[in-house]
Design a protein around this nucleic acid. Structure first.
Lengths: 250, 250
DNA sequence: CGGTTCATTGATTCGCGTCAATGCAGGTGG
DNA sequence: CCACCTGCATTGACGCGAATCAATGAACCG
């Protein structure tokens, strides 16, 4: 399903088209201003653009698999991806959802430590790890930016550990809704409307619950007038402040 | 309890003594080879040594507090520290235990995002954040090293999220014992003997359990012949491989 | 030696998981 | 265009694992 050697063989159409019109697919990139690559200027940016290729994944396709040799790094242009780890018996913990502008990669060792799977159709930039690492070493702005990203990942992970270790089901779901709303808002989505591209059991795997508990909790929130379920993937947070309290926000 | 302005006012005796005999307290540092500072050479190392001071904390003393302005960074010379986050009602999640050689700091923003408290008496190096940040910017080896550290912190956090979200009580405690044994071993401790300087409720706050459950699980492991409780802070992992299986290791 | 702190053990409760049925929407083919 | 199928979400009944509440035990210390 995810043969790494295939990555460089399938430049997606939209990128190939741009290649023909411009010097680099990056020149017209829609997410550049939200991505790590925005810190690069002039020649350094060109070097990055020189090693990038494009690829797309269908929903449910595996992007990278835990344990595989980490030869490629990705930047998401559109769509949503889940990052997760699994136990031998199949229990899985999603450690994060990524969306356009987010970077997938930076493993600590030679192998991927997480799996990544497309939730929706996804378009990505692909960087060969070797060349990318070389670029990091020679471009301090890039290293600094990735360092910054790693730092906030650590902070986010700690926050989520608090949720997984100590929050109740209601607090977890409320936290998730608030977090999603904030993310959506920073991407320019209408306030208090949250789009949930992932399935209930993916929300559950993110929150350390079962999909039944997630569903029941949403139903309860609706009964309490905290939310309106416009569709199963579209929630209106009608009482945002109240939800933040339930979430145990600081 | 943790007045930040006090940090620079209390150089501890052992450091002051060294200062008088050598150019820098770092010259005789026992943990340097296990610390981030080991990547620095010559003049760069001197610059680091020039901004460092020493301090000690008693058991249960707060080192840094979540939300405080992050003006100081620490490197642990001896002792054990817990890093944790809390909810308004007091529920706490310990995100990690640090020991000699470990670095405390690198917050993503201007404030500490975690609290740190000494579990045992602790001796630390103290760096003023401003000067330290300047040094990072001017010394690529240092930045690279800290980046590396941040990466492995992310990986460790993901691993722990899997534990908190998906493992049973037995799996959690087994994981903790194995993890502790590995850490102890890399510090040169006799194989399969684990020292647990933290209290049962601190283990519980790390594993997302209660101290009763931790205690019961240890008792069960003992009954199963997996461990021997030499003392409440000293466990012999008599069947290490079996424990690893219970932990759900990969 | 009494007091304090922490670990262990026991009895009971309860939140969430498990198992199972039903509902609902989207896609497909007749 | 409708009947059927399929995948997911919701709802319900029930059980279990860990939390809670409570008591006892063990180590440490002035």
């Amino acid at each position: 399903m995810s043969d790494p050697s295939a990555h460089s063989k399938e430049p997606v159409a939209f990128l190939a088209q741009r290649m023909s019109r411009t010097a680099s697919p990056c020149d017209q990139c829609a997410v550049r201003e939200h991505s790590f690559c925005d810190v690069l200027q002039g020649q350094e940016f060109s070097r990055l653009a020189a090693i990038v290729t494009g690829r797309s994944f269908g929903a449910r396709q595996t992007v990278v698999q835990e344990g595989d040799r980490a030869e490629w790094l990705f930047n998401i242009i559109s769509g949503t991806v889940k990052l997760y780890r699994t136990l031998p018996d199949g229990r899985t913990q999603i450690v994060g959802f990524l969306r356009d502008g987010d970077f997938v990669g930076v493993p600590a060792g030679p192998d991927y430590l997480l799996s990544a799977e497309a939730i929706t159709p996804v378009q990505v930039c692909v960087f060969p790890k070797r060349a990318f690492d070389r670029l990091i070493g020679e471009c301090q702005a890039l290293e600094k930016k990735l360092f910054e990203l790693a730092r906030s990942e650590v902070a986010a992970a700690h926050e989520h550990m608090l949720l997984l270790g100590r929050k109740t089901a209601s607090e977890r779901v409320a936290s998730f809704l608030v977090e999603s709303a904030v993310t959506d808002a920073s991407a320019g989505s209408p306030e208090r409307h949250v789009h949930l591209p992932m399935a209930r059991n993916e929300i559950a795997d993110y929150l350390g619950l079962t999909m039944e508990t997630v569903s029941r909790t949403l139903t309860k929130f609706r009964a309490q007038g905290l939310i309106v379920l416009k569709a199963s993937d579209h929630v209106l947070l009608s009482r945002f402040d109240r939800l933040r309290e339930v979430a145990g926000a600081r």
